[in-house]
């Protein structure tokens, strides 16, 4: 536990990201555009799951890349570009979720919810129907995912879908690997229970 899960094509892709980001740091806007095209889709997918709103997620993608560009001179290729990108995106997503006037589509999870009891999933929650944009969310798993505490949701998505290691996810979520391990397991267990109940 602890080593990034990067090998083969993923390693080549990570190296290309670093090359592009270093070029961007040197002032190459073409490289910045290439990074955008490589990462905008997975980033949008992640942010949509985090904030539950397509338009807000798109705005956050823009804002994330603007932050990347503003911080380009401080970029250091010590870690994968994706870890850095998701760290910025996660901050923005959490800020978006905490905006006071925002309709709270998702369960709040102030602090580290790794030690909390697993949440009731869609179907158990009286707010489930209003909380989910049924026009966009097609599957029971997606519904269940949207009902998870945000840190559980983020940890599971980053590791199971985006392929971050626990160490990278811990860096992104600013917590410990042990906490990420617990977050991922709780999230996965909750979704597994939901799959079973829906079967």
């Amino acid at each position: 536990m602890g080593e990034p899960k990067v090998d083969g094509p993923a390693l080549d892709a990570a190296k290309e990201d670093v090359r592009l980001m270093l070029a961007c740091r040197a002032g190459d806007d073409v490289a910045f555009g290439a990074l955008f095209r490589r990462w905008s889709s997975p980033l949008l997918r992640y942010l949509e799951r985090m904030v539950g709103d397509a338009a807000a997620a798109e705005e956050l993608v823009q804002e994330t890349f603007l932050r990347v560009h503003r911080a380009r001179e401080r970029y250091s290729p010590d870690a994968r570009f994706s870890t850095w990108l998701y760290t910025i995106a996660n901050h923005l997503a959490l800020n978006e979720l905490r905006r006071p006037h925002r309709h709270r589509e998702h369960r709040s999870a102030d602090g580290d919810d790794a030690d909390r009891e697993p949440l009731a999933l869609a179907g158990d929650s009286p707010r489930a129907e209003e909380a989910i944009d049924t026009r966009r969310l097609g599957s029971a798993v997606e519904q269940a995912l949207s009902q998870l505490p945000e840190r559980q949701r983020a940890a599971l998505w980053l590791t199971a879908v985006e392929g971050l290691s626990y160490a990278e996810a811990a860096s992104t979520l600013e917590t410990t690997e042990k906490s990420v391990k617990a977050l991922v397991h709780r999230a996965r267990s909750a979704l597994a229970d939901n799959l079973h109940s829906g079967a």
Binding site: P42, E48, G138
Partner: peptide, 18 residues
């Protein structure tokens, strides 16, 4: 669960977003 998550439709990035 993981297969379901990975199989979720990826949102289409708006053409003019870049």
């Amino acid at each position: 669960v993981d297969a379901n998550l990975r199989g979720l439709a990826a949102p289409r990035v708006c053409a003019d977003l870049e």
